[in-house]
Amino acid sequence: MPDKNITLDQFAAERLPATTRFPSLAIGDSTGLHGGCQLSWTRSGTRVPPIEGVSSLYRVLFEQVGQQGRAAAAKGLANQASILDSVREDAQSFRSRLSAADQRKFEEYFSAVRDVEQRVQARRRWLDIPKPEAPFPQPKNTNMVEDLPLIYDLIALALQTNSTKIATLEIGGAFKPPHLGIQGDHHALSHHGKREGHIQALITLDTYQIQHFARFIEKLASINDHDGRSLLDTTTVLLGSGMGDANTHTNKNLPLVLAGGGFEHGSMIRFTDDSSNRPPLCNLFVSILQQLGLEVDRFGKSTGTLRGLA
């Protein structure tokens, strides 16, 4: 695959004009099951480090930097810029000593330098532009169950204030059932072995998550974006799970909900096991990218856009 395993969010972030303070926000756990959040990957195969917890997310979005802090930050960025300048120039002689194969590998370093140079530039630009006004005082982290609505609210605010155009959220290992009054842990419950109690507990957990997702959608619908359209009309929202059935541990037939973005909604598009020519999930991603106005006709293993979606 020409784009390796770059994820949808980073793929889109690369292509959208850089008009926001953050090209994208990745929110999730940095540790936990399978080593934490796996939703966001760069083109070179690096996992984008996630923002963890509601309090950090709040600080990222709204914490104003005082004059002293700005001066220190400006100095730090200037130092970074001068180091980047110097290593970019000097790395040429390092490169010239490498074998041809190693030189190809070393291209990663140069593109990383260019990438960070752009980021540093963007940061310097944004440094003097105050962040949007904080809507409420900084929240404390409690736990992922109780904090979930607040995280959704902050994502809505991030979109509303145009702090970013892209956000991903992984509800992972930090989402602990005891905080919903359920004994056991999520992973254990998901391997339910058809035990009735486990399945009931999972229904409770999933219901809670879906309710807050629905609340998030409603919130986006209630916010006016521009041209009389709501934020939901201009934002595509995708909810899903990496498991079609955790008990059989299959990643086929994934449950997915698509909302907003100006698609025609209100129906279930079903691709069952026996339907022939089942499309890969990447087709949906191509549809989403096109809806964002990007001239893209393939992504990952796509074979086209998703049929049945208008």
Binding site: V48, E108, V116
Partner: peptide, 15 residues
């Protein structure tokens, strides 16, 4: 692999 995300962390870690 080396990426911008990593190089940025290298800058911060060096500091």
């Amino acid at each position: 692999t080396t990426s911008g995300f990593l190089l940025e962390k290298y800058l911060q870690a060096a500091d």
